[in-house]
Amino acid sequence: MKIAYSPCPNDTYVFHALTHQLIADTPTFDVSYADIDVTNTWAIEGDPHDHDVMKISFAALPYVLDDYQLLSCGGALGRGCGPLLLTKEETSPQTLAEKRVAVPSDRSTAYMLFRLWARQKIDANIKEIVVMPFHDIMPAVQAGTVDAGLVIHEARFTYQEYGLHKLVDLGEWWEEDTGAPIPLGAIIAKKGLDHEQIESWIRQSVDYANEYPESSKDYVMEHAQEMSEDVARSHIDLYVNEFTKDLGDDGYKAIRELLLRAADEGIVPKPDLSEISR
Results as ranks from 00 to 15, higher is better:
5 Y>E: 05
14 V>W: 01
21 Q>F: 01
23 I>L: 07
29 F>M: 04
35 D>H: 06
38 V>E: 08
42 W>A: 05
44 I>G: 00
45 E>Q: 12
48 P>M: 06
51 H>C: 06
52 D>P: 08
54 M>T: 04
57 S>I: 00
57 S>D: 10
60 A>D: 01
62 P>H: 11
64 V>H: 06
64 V>F: 06
66 D>I: 08
67 D>P: 06
68 Y>W: 15
74 G>D: 08
75 G>M: 05
78 G>P: 13
81 C>D: 10
82 G>R: 09
85 L>D: 14
85 L>F: 13
86 L>K: 06
89 E>C: 05
90 E>C: 03
92 S>M: 12
95 T>K: 14
98 E>G: 09
106 D>Q: 15
107 R>P: 01
113 L>S: 14
117 W>P: 14
119 R>H: 14
120 Q>R: 15
132 M>S: 12
132 M>Q: 13
134 F>K: 01
134 F>H: 12
135 H>L: 07
136 D>I: 05
137 I>M: 12
138 M>N: 04
138 M>T: 12
138 M>S: 09
144 G>M: 14
145 T>C: 05
146 V>D: 11
148 A>P: 11
157 F>D: 09
160 Q>Y: 04
161 E>I: 05
162 Y>H: 10
164 L>F: 08
167 L>W: 09
172 E>D: 12
174 W>L: 08
174 W>E: 04
175 E>K: 04
181 P>E: 04
182 I>F: 04
188 I>L: 07
196 E>T: 12
205 S>W: 08
208 Y>S: 06
208 Y>E: 04
213 P>W: 01
215 S>E: 09
216 S>V: 01
217 K>D: 10
218 D>T: 13
225 Q>N: 13
228 S>M: 02
236 I>M: 02
236 I>Y: 02
237 D>A: 03
239 Y>R: 00
242 E>L: 00
244 T>P: 03
244 T>A: 09
245 K>S: 05
249 D>M: 04
256 R>W: 02
257 E>C: 03
257 E>F: 00
259 L>E: 10
263 A>G: 13
264 D>P: 04
266 G>C: 10
267 I>L: 15
270 K>T: 15
274 S>W: 00
